[in-house]
Amino acid sequence: MSTDVDRQLARTSELLDRTRERYGKVSKRARQQRQAEVLRRVGRIAVADGAILMAALVAGLILPGGIGMFGALLMMLLLVVATIGFAIFPLVGAPSVEQLQQVPLKALPLTTERWLEGQRPALPSPVLGLVDSIGVKLEFLAPQLAQLDEQSPAATEVRKLVGEQLPELIKGYARVPEPLRRVERNGLTPDQQLAQGLQVIDDEIAGMSAQLAQGDLDLLATRGRYLQVKYQGDESGIG
Rank of each mutant, 00 (worst) to 15 (best):
L15P: 05
I84Q: 11
G197V: 03
A72N: 12
G129P: 05
E21N: 14
K25Q: 11
K160Q: 14
I205S: 00
P95E: 04
L91G: 14
T12R: 05
D234Y: 09
G68Q: 03
L74R: 04
M1G: 10
L194S: 09
L16N: 00
L217Q: 02
G50F: 01
Q214A: 15
L39V: 12
F89E: 08
L219V: 14
Q165R: 15
P64M: 04
D218F: 09
D202P: 08
E117C: 08
A82I: 02
V80M: 10
L39R: 15
V58T: 01
E164L: 11
Q35M: 05
K25G: 11
K160I: 04
F89V: 08
Y226N: 13
A87L: 09
P64E: 10
P153E: 02
P121G: 01
L73T: 01
Y231P: 07
G65R: 06
A48S: 07
T111N: 08
V92M: 14
A154Y: 01
S152M: 08
T19N: 07
G224M: 08
S152T: 02
I201K: 01
L188N: 04
L78V: 04
A155I: 05
Y23A: 03
Q33V: 06
L63N: 00
G71H: 05
N186R: 14
T83Y: 09
E184T: 08
L61H: 09
M54P: 01
F140K: 15
L128N: 07
R120H: 07
D6F: 10
A56G: 03
E164N: 10
A206R: 00
Q32L: 11
L138T: 06
R40E: 10
L57A: 14
V92F: 13
L53K: 13
G135F: 02
L39Q: 15
V136R: 04
G197P: 07
R18N: 04
L194E: 04
A107I: 10
P90N: 08
S27H: 13
L53W: 02
Q99L: 12
E178A: 02
I52Q: 00
D132N: 10
P177N: 01
P124N: 08
Y173S: 07
A94Y: 15
D49H: 13
P121N: 04
T83I: 06
L194W: 00
E235S: 09
T156C: 09
L219T: 13
L212M: 01
